[in-house]
């Protein structure tokens, strides 16, 4: 090790010099593009995983794009921000840049949203999946009854399963994932009491290879239907594809992960909520309400994969369940 005093001195000087150099070339105006009277509606999205994860984060991007089909919107985004404090900086940055709507797409972002929304009372925030608006007039909360679609798909899965054995690959037993899995299980058991629905939470949202082994184990143990939630399911769908086992998807339309084996996907149509929120903002109402996606309000939809030869009778079971859940005659028990 070299003499320490020299190193410190040098590093201090280095840091000082860097700050000066950087500050000198960084003095410019950040070029605020404000004044958005007639311009597009500006939406910023902050999310924990990638916008193409065929799961949670993709669902919000697809939804905002669907809103964009009917009106002029401009989207900015920061994805992959699983570090909550980094998400907080991004949220604050977008708020400073006067976005018309700042979406914090992750239930772990709640605390920073509460903090930042107070600092920027004229900026509208939306966050999910949660119900709490913290009593703030500029925060909308949104969440989803993912158990409803899970229930309907669980019933179809139970009817489809010849082995009466279903495997569920979950990430960590919390939040939206737990809600979906519990709903799915309840639906399957309601359709076919005594069916084996085994759930394996692999303790990771990202370990694709472990999800693959979890699916392999289910198939080896006799499961002939698989489902799962979160972004690591691509490992499980690969197994389903090569073993020819049917798959039920959730969060986004997962037909692209296996055209031959995906039966149906529960798709989140956040645009149902977003359109409400945006309409409010147009009228000067920045939020304060909690929104819920359900089958009934069209925020949840079971999208069937046309390439999968699903028996009409089984499809009917699913549609009956959806109808029952919509009119309230069926409850998921969650």
């Amino acid at each position: 090790m070299k003499s320490s005093g020299k190193v410190i001195g040098k590093l201090l000087a280095l840091t000082a010099a860097m700050i000066m150099v950087l500050a000198a070339c960084g003095g410019g105006d950040s070029g605020d593009s404000g004044g958005d009277e007639a311009g597009p509606f500006r939406v910023a999205i902050v999310a924990p995983s990638a916008d193409n994860d065929v799961a949670f984060t993709q669902s919000i991007f697809d939804s905002v794009n669907r809103v964009g089909e009917s009106r002029d919107i401009e989207i900015a985004s920061s994805t992959g921000l699983f570090v909550v404090e980094d998400a907080a900086s991004a949220l604050r940055g977008y708020a400073e840049e006067d976005y018309d709507l700042v979406i914090a797409h992750g239930s772990q972002y709640g605390a920073p949203v509460e903090e930042i929304a107070k600092e920027f009372p004229e900026v509208a925030f939306a966050w999910g999946t949660e119900v709490n608006t913290f009593g703030l007039a500029n925060v909308s909360a949104y969440t989803v009854r993912s158990d409803e679609g899970g229930y309907a798909m669980g019933a179809m899965a139970a009817a489809l399963s010849e082995a009466q054995n279903i495997g569920v690959v979950g990430p960590i037993e919390v939040g939206d994932a737990k809600l979906y899995v519990d709903g799915f299980k309840a639906g399957a058991e309601a359709q076919s009491p005594g069916i084996a629905v085994n759930v394996n939470y692999i303790e990771s949202f990202s370990d694709v290879a472990l999800a693959q082994e979890a699916a392999t184990a289910f198939v080896a143990n006799g499961a002939d239907i698989l489902t799962g939630t979160a972004q690591m399911v691509v490992g499980a769908t690969g197994v389903a594809q090569s073993e020819g086992v049917a798959w039920f998807g959730t969060q986004s339309n997962q037909s692209s992960l296996g055209a031959d084996i995906v039966v149906a996907s529960q798709v989140y149509h956040w645009e149902v909520v977003l359109e409400d929120i945006i309409a409010g903002i147009d009228e000067g109402d920045l939020g304060g309400e909690s929104h819920l996606l359900t089958l009934e309000n069209g925020g949840l939809e079971i999208e069937f994969n046309d390439a999968y030869p699903l028996d009409g009778a089984i499809k009917q079971i699913g549609e009956d369940m959806v109808a029952g859940l919509k009119d309230g005659s069926i409850k998921t028990g969650q």
Partner: peptide, 12 residues
Amino acid sequence: LEVGNFQQNLTA
């Protein structure tokens, strides 16, 4: 090749 797919941080 075992998984037959890719995703960020695949090797975890």
